[in-house]
Amino acid sequence: MENILLIAIMHGVKMNSKIEKLIKQFAKLPRVGGRSAQRIVLSLLQDKTGRASNLANTLNDVAQSVCPCPICGVLMDNENGSCEFCRDRSRANGQLCIVRDLGDVWTLEKSGIFHGRYHILGGQISGVSGVTPDDLNINSLPKRIKEENITEIIFALPNTVEGKTTQHYVMSVLGNNDNIIFSELASGVPLGGDLDYLDDGTLSLAFGGRKKI
């Protein structure tokens, strides 16, 4: 049945305008093309267990109740006032990790290697994309550092020209502070990586950042 419907849609058979609108909405999502959107919509509409209604309710609930944390920018439930990272006292260890977006926070959390607090910039300075320092969450940083007694700032930004430009800009805004250690993630040979596959830039960084054993 699903295949017949799919073939009908693919061959330009006229469909319900509401369904067409829904397919277009799904097709706008990241990594979802037109065909995938059609499959998703068909799957939802043909499901007898009420999955479509559940999804609609959950989406509506999340869209209305989730907002960025006013302190760090992590998405949170707006009833709480701040996110779970900012509320967790055990995370107030003086370490602040500056990241580009929420996806980076989730990646770091999944690895379980960082137990401090986060600060999401919401992008990176880019002349090409027209992102200026004013578009980023930088201005609140000095106040936050003072209030939370931050002793180390870890930059976990992309190792690209834009990422480094943003990092240098943030450092220039924060100025020289002897009480704060600035650090950045190491760059070099990936785990399981062959030297053959590394470009000269990565190799030079790896050599430059070598450590005594």
Binding site: N159, K164, D199, G201, T202, L205
Partner: peptide, 8 residues
């Protein structure tokens, strides 16, 4: 990659 040498 000349950029890599200048990024730091």
């Amino acid at each position: 990659n000349l950029g890599a040498f200048l990024m730091m």
